[in-house]
Nucleic acid binder design. Structure first.
Length: 271
DNA sequence: CCATATACCTGGCAGC
DNA sequence: TGCTGCCAGGTATATG
């Protein structure tokens, strides 16, 4: 579910409310993708200074380190005034003086990991190879073009890999490629500089628009206040197999790349 | 080094 | 109704 827009929307929905809070208790449920790495009690007494995002990770800055949260495929956070009874898929409760942050994740591909600092493992290992942040000034066209030039894999898979640019998942990769008129199967390094520039602009535009729309709620995404997103309603190609292209009416095609579905318009994205 | 396949886990849905 | 197989927003790790 959560790509950059959903993670950012989640962050925006609770960051200011949790800032300054003191941890009163922490409860972990079933195992997630990785263990927390420390006893949950280590967090008790620390305060949450703020919440940042790096790629699809949320980083809670605390007195003695960072709590890294990842939503995987099916995760969502909820920040509520008090602690309700935990459901079957609620696998982390961070009880603070300002509310309870709860991680709900049916598939458990998500994670809550403690790291003493961003420079050391496990944070350094998880964040170390991440590419540029697409919604910051650091996302320079030159660097993006240089990154793509080094990759011979299909452009869709290069975007998903997150080593050139982070945050673009399966929905927004297809959407950005449609917006820039690029066939997802084209090898990244074969794209001309102007077409790379179009893609660069499309990535920024589609992600910013999705954040503004509250993200995409395909099945069950909600932000930490329980609100759904609306971007899926305006998707051009994702999930629209066989439906007419919104631009030219040609039926949208679905293919598989790297075991993931890709959607594109065979007419608008000729090569 | 690079590109691709595999693994993790649960729930929903189509088809029989 | 119940079963089976397939599909789903991610990504570290193994393998070629």
């Amino acid at each position: 579910m959560p790509e950059l827009p959903e993670v950012e929307v989640t962050r925006l929905s609770f960051a200011s409310r949790i800032a300054g809070a003191r941890v009163l208790a922490m409860r972990m449920g079933k195992p997630l993708r990785w263990p927390l790495g420390v006893a949950p009690s280590l967090l008790v007494g620390q305060s949450v200074m703020g919440v940042r995002r790096r790629g699809k990770y949320l980083l809670l800055d605390m007195d003695r380190g960072i709590l890294m949260l990842h939503l995987g495929m099916s995760g969502s956070l909820n920040f509520a005034p008090s602690q309700a009874e935990a459901g079957k898929h609620d696998h982390m409760d961070l009880v603070t003086s300002q509310g309870v942050l709860r991680l709900h994740d049916p598939r458990r591909f998500g994670a809550a990991v403690w790291s003493d600092s961003e420079q050391h493992a496990p944070a350094s290992k998880l964040l170390g190879k991440l590419g540029m942040e697409p919604l910051t000034d650091g996302f320079e066209l030159k660097l993006f073009q240089q990154g793509l030039k080094k990759r011979a894999a299909p452009i869709k898979q290069v975007l998903l890999a997150g080593e050139v640019v982070v945050g673009v998942g399966n929905i927004y990769a297809s959407e950005a490629l449609f917006m820039s008129g690029i066939r997802p199967t084209v090898k990244a390094h074969k794209l001309s500089a102007p077409r790379m520039a179009k893609l660069h602009a499309a990535i920024k535009q589609v992600l910013a628009r999705a954040v503004a729309q509250g993200g995409s709620s395909l099945k069950d995404f909600v932000n930490a206040q329980g609100n759904t997103g609306y971007f899926q309603l305006e998707a051009s190609v994702y999930g629209r197999t066989g439906l007419p292209c919104r631009v030219c009416s040609t039926p949208i095609k679905q293919i598989v790349q790297g075991q993931r579905s890709t959607f594109f318009c065979p007419a608008c994205q000729k090569h």
